[in-house]
Write a protein that binds this DNA or RNA. Structure first.
Length: 651
DNA sequence: AGCACGCCGACT
DNA sequence: GTCGGCGTGCTC
């Protein structure tokens, strides 16, 4: 007996190993094999009796699993993903499957008591629930729930999940971040008990394996997790839920660069299961597909309970003024809100103390020696690179002109925390960013302290914007809405609009009406008009026209080819060679547009120079064909070619 | 991707 | 003479 085995290597084909007489090896098992000089984990995708010729066959060393942990349908899915994202099937399988050896159930989820499940659906929610199930009968499987913040999308998801589980089918519930998964975990646990598992990268390998097996066997029927949960296997998948479908974290940032949302579409089609996307600010691509009728569109326009959408005010701030971080109006509203016993959330999407340190004499900016980004000053006196983690002490004199006039420009969460504490003396300010929540469980702690009323002002980066449900927050302040708006990326507007709608939605979730104050340097930017009216439709149409004019998605598919390496000349030389090869292979295909080559906006990260080419094409197959034909041109082992199909950002 | 082999420069 | 640079090729 012989087994076709994939290993995690950038190689297209499987390898044949012989199965020793007395060894129990079945399709869907992981095995240990000798591959060249090393032993690796392999994935058995088929068995046969044809003695291969032309090479000597090695024995499988031993099976890792005693029973299969995946089936043929995952193998087919892996091939589809491999073809779409131009990654090797073995690499896809190793990403999709858990890698532990000994299943462990030692994982304990932190429990709090901040959320309660309310089973009653409001009429709109009920209508959406019914519409989706009706459509399912007609094999209409893809659905988008466009629901304003606080409209109770989660209740609809839960009802759908219950419906499936009652019919002995299973459910995968994807959320963008682990952060959110612990909150929703608790809520779902009340409903589904031990039938629920979690699946994300913060579990250990063995915990992942344990949960994978529980879901695979049908012992657990519902899984909540981040993007990797999209690969969970089950004999009868009934529904995939992609919450906050617009979120960029569904896109994997290393090979295979898949998007869990697209994988969900593939699985929905293959396994005839429902796929329900939800968002208050759907991605332009998803909404476009919905409006074209390719995805069923459902709206939730009312907030759950008695809550109303908050009132939004846009304030132009003067960068010259001393109180630019906290305008008089925001200060006033904050005082009022705190005086009435409510809570405030401030969003400042930038961590550290000050994002730029420059010399007042020669105006040179201190940059990371490994990346071409400015170093951020942190409170402990260090200068930190937010890309590669490089740390150095704040220099006493300017490295280029030796002047002693070192100025810290701009404000991050740390600096604003200091001034907010000063202004609202005696109030409890909590700063929530990557630096303050590095320790496990901190976020859970914050949730408890917000609910108990211990925290008055929660100040943080985009972390504070997502998914929280604090009924006593009635004011949200965005301290500088411009951060990230002007980066050279076609999704910048969409990202910021979504973030600002999301954070606005944290205000006014209880009985008290909410208010949002957005401070910006550029109140003329069209985005703010739509934001002020909480007008997603308006923003969508505006953004769609921009995309149409420049032929960006949804009017094209994109592929990004990036070469990185330590030697700038080699990178540059090879990106031009790649350009020539692509052009050659594109000949006659006028449907593909090639942009570049150019230095990537982040030209150097971690000592690697980065140059890229963007391809736009009407059809993904054509893009993939041209890339496949051209990629071999890069053979320099000191260079690395990143192929990113449907990139989320192009920095 | 690793990890070999292999073929030339500068060292004890 | 050999230690070690990284170009090229293979992995069942």
């Amino acid at each position: 007996m012989y087994a076709e085995v994939f290993v995690s290597c950038p190689l297209d084909s499987s390898f044949t190993y012989s199965v020793p007489e007395d060894m129990d090896v079945r399709v869907g098992m992981r095995v240990r094999v000798e591959f060249g000089k090393r032993t690796m984990q392999g994935y058995v995708v088929s068995l046969h009796c044809n003695k291969p010729e032309g090479f000597k066959v090695k024995d499988i060393i031993e099976p890792i699993d005693d029973t299969p942990i995946f089936n043929e349908s995952l193998v087919e899915l892996a091939h589809e993903i491999s073809a779409t994202y131009l990654a090797a099937p073995g690499e896809v399988l190793s990403t999709a499957l858990p890698s532990g050896y000994r299943p462990s159930d030692r994982h304990k989820h932190p429990f709090g008591s901040c959320l309660k499940y309310n089973a009653a659906l409001m009429p709109q929610q009920e209508a959406v629930f019914n519409a989706i199930l009706d459509a399912e009968k007609n094999d209409s499987l893809l659905h988008l729930i466009h629901g304003i913040t606080g409209s109770g999308k989660t209740e609809v998801y839960i009802k759908l999940a219950q419906h499936m589980i009652e019919r002995n089918r299973s459910v995968i519930y994807c959320v963008p971040e682990i952060n959110l998964s612990s909150q929703i975990y608790e809520r779902l646990h009340h409903v589904f008990g031990d039938s629920l598992i979690v699946y994300h990268s913060q579990l250990t390998k063995n915990q992942r394996l344990h949960n994978w097996k529980r879901f695979y066997s049908g012992d657990a029927r519902i899984a909540i997790g981040t993007r990797s949960a999209i690969f969970l296997q089950n004999s009868d998948l009934g529904c995939i839920i992609i919450d906050e479908e617009h979120d960029g974290s569904y896109k994997e940032n290393s090979t295979p660069r898949y998007n869990a949302r697209r994988v969900a579409f593939y699985r929905s089609r293959r396994e005839k299961c429902l796929c329900v996307l939800g968002s208050a600010t759907p991605s332009i691509e998803t909404m476009y597909a919905a409006k074209k009728g390719l995805i069923g569109l459902h709206s939730l326009t009312e907030r759950y309970g008695d809550a109303q959408l908050p009132e939004v005010e846009i304030i132009k701030i003067d960068p010259e003024k001393k109180d630019k971080n906290l305008s008089p109006l925001l200060t006033l509203y904050t005082k009022r809100t705190l005086d009435s016993g409510h809570q405030v959330i401030y969003l400042l999407n930038r961590r550290g103390f000050s994002p730029v340190v420059m010399c007042g004499s020669c105006s040179s900016i201190l940059e990371c020696p490994h990346c071409n980004v400015s170093l951020t000053y942190h409170k402990n006196g260090s200068l930190l690179c937010h890309y590669c983690g490089y740390v150095q002490a704040l220099p006493k004199i300017c490295p280029s002109c030796s002047s002693e006039e070192i100025i810290r420009v701009g404000a991050g969460t740390q600096r604003v925390e200091e001034s907010v504490e000063k202004i609202f003396n005696g109030k409890n300010v909590f700063r929530m960013d990557q630096d303050s929540t590095r320790k496990k469980g901190t976020i859970y702690d914050v949730i408890g302290r917000m609910n108990s009323g211990e925290i008055d002002i929660l100040l943080g980066t985009q972390m504070v914007a997502k998914g929280f449900d604090f009924p006593r927050v009635s004011l949200v302040g965005v301290l500088l809405a411009d951060i990230g708006l002007n980066i050279p990326d076609f999704r910048a507007s969409e990202r910021i609009f979504s973030l600002l709608v999301q954070v606005s939605g944290r205000s006014g979730r209880g009985k008290e009406p909410g208010r949002v104050i957005i401070q910006t340097l550029d109140d003329g930017h069209p985005l703010f008009q739509f934001l002020q009216k909480q007008d997603y439709e308006g923003f969508y149409h505006h953004e769609l026209e921009t995309r149409r004019a420049l032929c960006y998605p949804p009017f094209s598919r994109l592929a990004r080819l990036l070469i990185r390496g330590k030697n700038r000349d080699a990178v540059e030389k090879n990106i031009y060679a790649l350009r020539d090869e692509l052009k050659k292979n594109m000949a006659g295909d006028s449907s593909i547009i090639l942009l570049g080559p150019a230095a990537a906006p982040l030209e150097k990260v971690g000592d690697n120079y980065r140059y890229h080419i963007i391809l736009k094409g009407a059809r993904l197959e054509n893009l993939c064909r041209v890339i496949s034909l051209s990629r071999h041109i890069i053979s320099d082992r000191n260079l690395y070619l990143e192929i990113d199909i449907d990139p989320y950002d192009i920095l």
